Simulated scan of single mutants.
Amino acid sequence: MHAQEFQPPYTPIAYGVTTLRQNGYALLHAADVQAWLAATADELGAVHAGWNALPADAYLKDGGRYRRRRHSSFVVEGEQVRLVPHRAHWQPLEYNALHGGMQRWFEPMLPQTVALPVWSRLLARVGETVSALHGERPWFVEAHTFRIDTAGGIGRPTPEGAHRDGVDLVAVFMLDRHAIKGGESRVFEANGPAGQRFTLREPWSLLLLDDARVIHETTPIQPLSPDELGWRDTLVLTYRRDGFQES
């Protein structure tokens, strides 16, 4: 733990849903997540391998070139996970003042990633959590694979600032931090003063957010050394009832 960082408020996975109900968010240890997914380190590594082939995000309105990403959409119903035809990512301005109102056509996730058995298992497990929170139903899931880098000196994981996503649950998997400082996660009550701040460092630790109750952001990252490229890899899943957000 770095001296100036706040201790991440990890929750035992057995109390994850209870903590979500109480606080609007829950943070799970990587070892608990791996056991929950019944996944080996090699299986999780096969998922993360796709992050080395992420195209640049061409839609950044701040003019930055620090974000690479892919995007695919799924319907999750119990153990059944179905990839839907490729579609644009769209958010209303109400939830994303910077990039809302735009149809953003990102490249889809790699077929070899989506075909991994652990990938469907991962989507189904998170689906169980949101069903425990909001009732069982089909969930409309958008998967975002992000790499934020320091090629321009600074990278912004959430250039839109503190926000909600307009969904029922947000799941943020930390996958990798390389040669960076910063990237502090901040979670605040949407309708109150309470908040938490901490830095995700464990690969495959998981932050779950009840999107109606909290807003969230991640602070910018900078390189530890001006001579070395740094990056921060995350997988972000959003679960929404009654359909995808559409323009």
Rank of each mutant, 00 (worst) to 15 (best):
Leu20Arg: 05
Ala56Ile: 14
Arg82Lys: 11
Thr40Ile: 10
Phe244Arg: 03
Asn96Pro: 03
Arg201Cys: 08
Ala194Val: 07
Leu110Pro: 07
Gln245Val: 09
Arg232Pro: 00
His48Gly: 07
Trp90Ile: 09
Leu235Met: 07
Ser131Arg: 03
Trp105Gly: 02
Leu224Val: 07
Arg70Gly: 08
Ser247Trp: 13
Val47Cys: 05
Arg147Ala: 09
Gly192Met: 09
Ala49Asn: 04
Arg69His: 04
Gly78Thr: 09
Gly152Phe: 14
Trp51Tyr: 14
Leu54Cys: 03
Gln245Leu: 15
Ile13Glu: 10
Pro226Phe: 06
Leu54Lys: 00
Phe244Trp: 07
Gly195Cys: 04
Val214Lys: 08
Arg232Asp: 00
Asp149Met: 11
Val170Gly: 07
Ala171Gly: 15
Val118Asn: 09
Pro138Ile: 03
Leu27Trp: 06
Gln7Asp: 01
Ala26Lys: 02
Glu189Asp: 08
Leu54Ile: 01
Ala49Met: 05
Glu77Leu: 03
Gly155Val: 10
Tyr10Leu: 07
Glu217Pro: 04
Gln103Ser: 14
Leu123Glu: 04
Leu207Thr: 02
Gln80Thr: 12
His163Gln: 02
Gly63Val: 13
Pro9Tyr: 13
His48Thr: 10
Asn191Ala: 11
Ala41Gln: 09
Phe6Pro: 01
Pro92Val: 10
His48Ala: 15
Phe173Ala: 15
Val172Arg: 06
Leu20Lys: 04
Ser131Tyr: 02
Gly63Asn: 06
Glu246Trp: 06
Leu229His: 09
Asp149Phe: 13
Val141Cys: 14
Pro138Glu: 05
Gly192Arg: 11
Trp51Ser: 11
Gly16Ile: 04
Glu189Ser: 05
Val214Gln: 10
Ala31His: 11
Pro12Phe: 08
Gly45Met: 01
His29Trp: 01
Arg164Met: 10
Ala162Glu: 08
Gln7Phe: 12
Arg87Pro: 00
Ala53Gln: 04
Val33Gly: 00
Gly63Phe: 09
Tyr15Glu: 13
Ile148Tyr: 11
Leu224Met: 12
Phe198His: 11
Thr113Met: 05
Val47Arg: 02
Pro111Asp: 07
Gln103Trp: 13
Val167Ile: 02
Tyr15Ser: 15
Gly161Phe: 11
Thr199Lys: 10
Asp227Tyr: 10
Ala97Gln: 12
Ala14Met: 07
Leu123Pro: 01
Gly64Glu: 02
Arg125Ser: 04
Ala46Glu: 12
Thr11Arg: 05
Leu224Ala: 15
Leu237Arg: 11
Asp168Lys: 00
Ala97Val: 11
Pro138Gly: 03
Leu54Met: 00
Gly155Ala: 03
Asp149Arg: 05
Trp105His: 13
Val141Met: 05
Leu60Gly: 09
Val187Phe: 01
Arg232His: 03
Gly101Arg: 06
Asn96Arg: 03
Gln34Thr: 00
Gly161Tyr: 14
Leu224Arg: 13
Thr158Glu: 08
